[in-house]
Simulated scan of single mutants.
Amino acid sequence: MPLATLTGKGQITIPVSVRQALGLHAGDKLEFVLNENGEVICKPVVKRVDDVFGRLHKPGRKTVSVEAMDAAIRRKLQERAK
């Protein structure tokens, strides 16, 4: 069973076998859940598209078609190329 040691700053290094099993990479977030038996469950925080859907919506903002977005991107790329 993999072990980790707590530092004086309250940090641990997650063993490579655990990181690989959970598919963790630098910058990923973990959630710690303390159950009624005093055990801690550690699981990766995964964002689903449903969790972030609509975050960019601003009431009253004019909608833009995909074609208009593509045209704006092309214009900006052409401006930078000059």
Rank of each mutant, 00 (worst) to 15 (best):
R74L: 12
L34E: 13
A26C: 09
G38A: 07
F53Q: 15
V46E: 15
L22Q: 05
P59V: 05
H25F: 09
I14W: 03
A21G: 05
K58H: 08
F53L: 15
M1I: 07
I73M: 15
N35M: 07
V46T: 12
C42I: 08
F32G: 03
I12R: 04
T13S: 15
S65H: 01
L30D: 09
V66W: 09
E36I: 03
A71G: 06
M69N: 07
R48I: 09
A4C: 07
K9H: 00
T63W: 11
A71R: 14
R61S: 08
P59Q: 13
I41D: 10
E39T: 02
G60L: 06
L34D: 10
V18W: 11
L6W: 05
T63K: 14
G10V: 02
V16M: 12
K47Q: 12
E39M: 10
L56V: 06
A21P: 01
S17F: 11
Q78C: 04
I12T: 05
V45F: 09
T63H: 11
K58F: 05
A21H: 10
A68I: 04
A72G: 07
V66D: 15
N37Y: 06
R48E: 15
S65A: 03
V45H: 06
L30E: 12
A71T: 09
L34A: 08
F32E: 12
K62Y: 06
L22A: 04
E31W: 03
L3F: 09
L6P: 00
K82S: 11
H57M: 08
D70K: 12
Q20W: 07
H57D: 13
H57G: 04
E39S: 08
K62D: 10
G10S: 02
V64L: 13
V52R: 03
L34W: 02
K9P: 00
A4K: 02
K43E: 14
R80A: 14
G10P: 03
E39L: 14
P15N: 09
A81W: 09
A4D: 14
I12F: 00
R61H: 09
G27D: 14
L6T: 11
E79L: 05
Q20L: 11
S65M: 05
A72N: 10
L22G: 00
A68D: 15
K9W: 01
P44F: 10
G60T: 02
E31G: 01
L3T: 14
V66K: 13
V49R: 10
Q20P: 02
K47V: 11
A4V: 00
V18Q: 11
L34P: 00
I73P: 03
V52S: 08
E31Y: 03
Q11R: 06
K76V: 06
K43F: 05
I73F: 08
T5K: 07
G38K: 06
V49C: 13
P15V: 03
T7F: 02
V46K: 06
V18P: 00
G54S: 05
A71Q: 15
A26N: 13
D50Q: 12
G38N: 09
P15Q: 11
R55S: 08
T13G: 08
V45G: 08
V46W: 00
K47I: 12
Q20G: 08
R48P: 03
